[in-house]
Design a protein around this nucleic acid. Structure first.
Lengths: 147, 147
DNA sequence: GAGTTTTATGATACAATGTATCAAATCAGG
DNA sequence: CCTGATTTGATACATTGTATCATAAAACTC
């Protein structure tokens, strides 16, 4: 997870302005280590900075996703709502999300995944161009705690 | 992809009624071999059976997903809309979707995926309980056609 | 078949998650 | 300060569902 200064510098590099609302939204995101929904973020921001508009929150989320600072992940939540956001480092990797506490760990099993893709290409004659892989499970702490 | 008779029989087994609207919705789905959105299905149904309500379409989609006749897949579409539906056979498997024509192929690389999961478990000490895996690529026909 | 009960339907309203628009505010540079 | 380009917040709107509820239609009983 990057820190505030790094993100602000990144925005600066992109020719974007370090406005007060953006800094507020980024600050509200960077403390988070587990996936969050736009609604959660929105209510958190309303508490700390009620003047910030809803559109700005979504715009900033979108911005951070485009810059690779956030990832949008898909979950099978109820109610059709399936998007969550997750602060993560740049670069290709996958997420492993705890069913108990929501903790997120990254992994890159490139060798094993590459082998899998290779097998599928051989069996289907498709040329694989991309993949979406997400694992869910239970982190060591939640296993110990039995939750 | 199951056929109409099989689906109707399946509904019957579950104690569900083979009503006219349901049959219409199922018929509109079963011709499809590529992923479709609820909106596409809704407009198709309006043309062939305008009296069917929107709620019924969603209810039937939901029903078929629960019965395993449809899968709900997640795509990174624009506009926040990320759900698509896909008629598929029951049982655990994954989808391989063509970026060119939308054709869908199933695969089950259980051995390779099992090995991947095993590696991740060893490296992270998580207990893996589920996974979401989708590959996208280009089918042989689209490769040949250069699209 | 008529009556009853259960289930499904369609209309409507509502909720959640974004996006489009646009005037007003703000920022950066001279 | 002034100017011009970005951002912002408010508002309206779009999409994709879900909840409610009176009505309709199956299925079941006799």
């Amino acid at each position: 997870m990057p820190d505030l200064a790094a993100v602000l510098e990144r925005l600066d590099q992109e020719g974007l302005r370090l406005t007060e609302p953006r800094q507020q939204v980024v600050a509200a995101i960077l403390g988070r280590t587990t996936p969050f929904t736009s609604a959660e973020l929105w209510t958190a921001i309303q508490e700390r900075a009620p003047s910030i508009g809803r559109a700005t929150v979504f715009r900033t989320l979108d911005l951070l996703v485009r810059l690779g600072i956030l990832q949008r992940i898909h979950a099978d939540a109820e109610g059709g709502r399936c998007h969550a956001y997750l602060a993560c480092d740049a670069g290709h990797h996958h997420h492993l999300i705890c069913n108990g506490c929501g903790a997120v760990t990254d992994f890159t099993e490139d060798a094993a995944l590459g082998e899998l893709i290779h097998q599928v290409e051989r069996h289907t004659a498709f040329r694989i161009e991309g993949h979406r892989l997400e694992l869910v499970g239970r982190c060591p702490a939640c296993q110990a705690r039995g939750s």
